[in-house]
């Protein structure tokens, strides 16, 4: 049995929020620079240069990369041999998000009820996903998820007969319809299989994987290659103004599903792609 104090979790989360919102992750920065070399459109190149410059300003002047500092999405993988001390885990996460968004001057972007729409004033509640896993380690994943790209995400309960082509068409059409709204070049998270809610969660989990690291399953890796090519062939381009660079990466995460089902969820993330992981 290993003990972890919720105070340690609070501090780790504060650091995750700060890093995600102010520092463009190295994997994303590298993909933007690669894209600048392959992009052929002048408008597209100009936008990619602005994004790299933006990251430099954000780091140098402690300004958030983007004004939409998002919904705080927190993934907790808790080893089953861990004993948490110091109070409620869920309250700790909410308190850490509340503290971070105030302390770092981040935007408070949540409303109390989807129809009442009164700002909660502290960016809570965070969306928390908890899994109990073997071992005595705890992994914290943090995503600051902006509204523009989340709004353009989709889920489809396809019929199995449409097969791979149907899945590819659904994903590509989602990106095409999204146009400039989700702040392309995007990262495309695809949840394939499971059921209705599992597919959506798989899509979001797929976004946490570092850019450049391929999927575990060969079938998923092949689908990623096909999707990346076809998504970039749409010509949507940076900010939807045309070009080769529509996506920096496509990440597929699959799971077994019902004999009648072919669920596919597409969770788009903007080019700031604020994802951070830390292990306690």
């Amino acid at each position: 049995m290993r003990e972890i104090s919720t105070e340690v979790i609070r501090e780790a989360l504060l650091d995750c929020v700060r890093r995600a919102c102010f520092i463009l992750m190295p994997d994303v920065r590298q993909k933007l620079e690669e894209s600048l070399r392959t992009e052929t459109g002048e408008t597209g190149k100009s936008i990619l240069r602005q994004l790299i410059k933006n990251a430099e300003i954000a780091a140098a002047e402690s300004r958030p990369l983007c004004q939409d500092t998002g919904v705080a999405v927190v993934f907790l993988e808790i080893g089953q041999e861990i004993h948490l001390t110091g109070g409620s885990l869920e309250e700790t996460v909410q308190a850490a998000v509340r503290e971070a968004y105030k302390k770092f001057y981040l935007r408070k972007s949540l409303v109390d009820h989807p129809l009442n729409r009164k700002n909660t004033g502290d960016n809570t509640p965070a969306m928390i996903h908890t899994r109990i896993v073997p071992g005595d380690r705890m992994k914290i994943g943090f995503v600051a998820k902006g509204g523009g790209c989340e709004n353009m995400s989709r889920i489809g309960m396809l019929t199995p007969s449409v097969g791979c082509r149907g899945v590819v068409d659904f994903v590509v059409q989602t990106v095409r319809d999204a146009g400039g709204n989700p702040c392309p070049p995007v990262v495309v998270g695809v949840g394939l299989g499971g059921n209705f809610e599992k597919a959506a969660l798989l899509a979001k989990e797929a976004l946490l994987r570092p850019l450049g690291r391929p999927a575990e399953l060969p079938a998923d890796r092949e689908l990623e290659r096909t999707l990346l090519k076809e998504v970039n062939d749409t010509g949507v381009g940076p900010m939807g103004l045309g070009g080769r660079t529509t996506a920096l990466a496509v990440h597929v995460k699959s799971f077994p599903c019902h004999i009648a089902a072919l669920p596919v969820a597409v969770n788009l993330d903007c080019h700031s792609h604020r994802h951070v992981e830390t292990v306690l």
Partner: peptide, 30 residues
């Protein structure tokens, strides 16, 4: 703003004489 406008907005822009500018989404610090 960012992203495309509806036909209704474009019609109003044509009628009254207005312009829609795109700025780079996500370049918030810049």
């Amino acid at each position: 703003g960012k992203g495309e406008r509806s036909p209704e907005v474009v019609a109003a822009m044509k009628q009254s004489g207005a312009v829609y500018f795109a700025a780079t989404g996500g370049a918030g610090a810049l």
